[in-house]
Design a protein around this nucleic acid. Structure first.
Lengths: 137, 137
DNA sequence: TATCTTCTGCAACAATGTTGCATTATTAAT
DNA sequence: ATTAATAATGCAACATTGTTGCAGAAGATA
């Protein structure tokens, strides 16, 4: 669907603007997690730094993207499984290649149950695996 | 041992300076992961911001502390199990309480094996669990 | 097309992290 | 105890990353 981007925005009650469309397009075309800086580079000077920050923040709040963290900082990736504002599922597993540096979501892998000490209650799991990706092995 | 701090520094071929000793002391007295800002607050104006950054960097390289990441940023925690520069074990599991905001290492919990897709090879696992800690339940 | 609302760009600022260099402190050897 | 070699610190300057307020521009709706 060529209108995926517009539909996604509409579904989340966001106005279609070129900045939002371009950022969503970028996430779709690159399959890896992107930092604010990456996006700035891909989009050139078309949009203000602040606008990109605000767009990312909005997408985060709406559950369109999620944060991906590693030693080098913060990145963002699409929530492929259509998390909504209310029904956001909170298990994320990411793989970062120490060779090529790319980070992506491992959608088909699920995190095994973890046995927590007494009194702890878990809401959200976030697993980062670092190693070598198939392309770099 | 009152000399734990000095011994730790000596073991890692680091000179004993008041900044390093105070930072190590701080990590020992607080049981939770600390950010650069936290440390700055605890130590007051005694040391330059830059020195604290450099000390943390040195401790990281020597394996005295490790990074702890969550949505809010970067923190550091002691490597209790005496990781060395060479024999650094790379599975970290951290718990962040969404109520009180404190983050700590769950030393006794281990991460179950994860079944990775073909071609991926894992070196290091990093699991962040967010939820409520015993004190906030 | 008019109107209401939201988004954007700009400027300014805050927080976080880095680098170079001169000075000071630590360590090991005399 | 002094000294010489080395390493750590403080300062200044800078780079990156992220935030806020506000006026003007653009999107959605009727």
């Amino acid at each position: 669907m060529e209108s995926f981007v517009k539909d996604t925005l509409k579904d989340h009650n966001l106005r279609s603007t070129s900045c939002r469309e371009d950022i969503l397009d970028t996430f779709l075309s690159k399959e890896v997690a992107l930092s604010h800086g990456d996006i700035e580079n891909y989009l050139g000077e078309r949009f203000d730094r602040v606008t990109i920050y605000r767009t990312l923040k909005t997408f985060l709040e709406k559950g369109i993207i999620h944060k991906v963290l590693d030693d080098e900082g913060v990145r963002y990736a699409l929530c492929k499984d259509h998390c909504s504002e209310h029904d956001h599922h909170h298990d994320h597993i990411h793989f970062k290649c120490i060779q090529c540096g790319q980070t992506n979501c491992l959608a088909n892998v699920h995190i095994p149950a973890v046995q927590l000490p007494d009194g702890y209650r878990a809401n959200e799991l976030n697993l980062l695996i670092q190693g070598r990706c198939p392309a770099c092995n």
